[in-house]
């Protein structure tokens, strides 16, 4: 069919040659990439060097906003929350995702496809809706968790208290994203050639040893990629605490995470220049953490 089309087309139309074609294919993406990624980056870097002057307009202040941010406990408190969150959330999520992927892959299970698909479903629920549902569930008086606890004769903790808030947010992220990671690991495990399996069965390796000693190391590159994505995702924490704020004003303040801080600086405090510096610094922190993680894991693999 293709050949016939080729022959019936007039020969004298403009034929894009091999040299120009890649640039033509790249153009739409590149244009948007520059307009909505590179330019905002430069713009942010630029305005972060200014400050609203007392009388009219803005004035150039050099690195003042960054110096201010470095000494701003509100920024560092937010970074602290992010680190606690990431250290709690990522290992639990990756750990369960790996465990379930290995179990699914081992073939012992009943209803494999059912579990695989149902665990992935929460990924289709937007963070906003997931957070709304969980805040209803967390409700002290009317939430079913509290109700069930009372039925069993004890009092459930206040899930949005100072003490529990981070765990409660970790839980929302676990619910939403475990299945996504599990699916990726499962696909990677399934891609491992079958003859390896035959060989180790002959060796009499037990299923558990086989899964942890042979299969797991083979998907380490995949694990690293997902961890990097999780680091980037969790350090941008915004939606969940921003919404839970409605029911826990005293626990989640206006600088709970750097993103919430930048949002409030822009729209409440009217300090967009300082907000740009905060956004930029957060980006820097995320880049450094992901880079350090990749460096650290690369060395491990080489050894």
């Amino acid at each position: 069919m293709t050949e016939r089309q080729l022959k019936t087309r007039p020969r004298n139309r403009v034929i894009v040659n091999k040299k120009i074609a890649p640039y033509l294919f790249l153009a739409p993406f590149a244009l948007l990439f520059v307009a909505f990624l590179i330019v905002p980056l430069i713009y942010a870097a630029d305005i972060s060097l200014y400050k609203k002057a007392m009388v009219g307009g803005v004035k150039f202040v050099g690195a003042d906003n960054y110096i201010k941010a470095f000494a701003d406990p509100k920024f560092w408190e937010g970074i602290g929350v992010l680190f606690k969150f990431a250290f709690l959330q990522i290992p639990i999520m990756i750990g369960t995702a790996l465990l379930f992927a290995l179990i699914l892959d081992s073939g012992v299970l009943w209803a494999k496809a059912f579990f695989r698909i149902s665990f992935f479903i929460p990924y289709a629920v937007p963070a906003v809706i997931a957070t709304l549902i969980w805040s209803y569930l967390y409700g002290p008086a009317y939430g079913p968790i509290g109700q069930t606890a009372r039925l069993l004769g004890f009092e459930a903790p206040d899930f949005v208290s100072q003490e529990w808030i981070l765990g409660s947010i970790v839980n929302i992220a676990q619910w939403q994203f475990m299945g996504y990671n599990m699916i990726i690991y499962f696909a990677a495990l399934q891609a491992i050639p079958g003859d390896l399996e035959e060989a180790s069965v002959v060796d009499g390796a037990s299923a558990f040893t086989f899964a942890t000693r042979i299969k797991l190391p083979m998907i380490v590159p995949t694990i690293i990629v997902t961890v990097v994505f999780s680091i980037i995702g969790s350090l941008q924490l915004f939606t969940e605490p921003f919404l839970i704020q409605n029911m826990a004003r005293s626990v989640i303040n206006s600088n709970f995470t750097p993103n919430i801080y930048a949002y409030n600086l822009t729209f409440v405090a009217q300090q967009p220049n300082y907000a740009a510096a905060i956004s930029f610094l957060l980006g820097g922190v995320i880049a450094v953490v992901s880079y350090v993680f990749m460096l650290a894991t690369n060395q491990r693999i080489d050894r």
Binding site: P40, Y43, V228, N259, P272, G283
Partner: peptide
């Protein structure tokens, strides 16, 4: 390399600068 690097850039860090722009 730029595209790969961009995967690392936190989208939300760009939202407020983009809004200002």
């Amino acid at each position: 390399a730029l595209v790969l690097g961009a995967v690392m850039i936190p989208q939300t860090a760009l939202v407020i600068p983009m809004f200002l722009m």
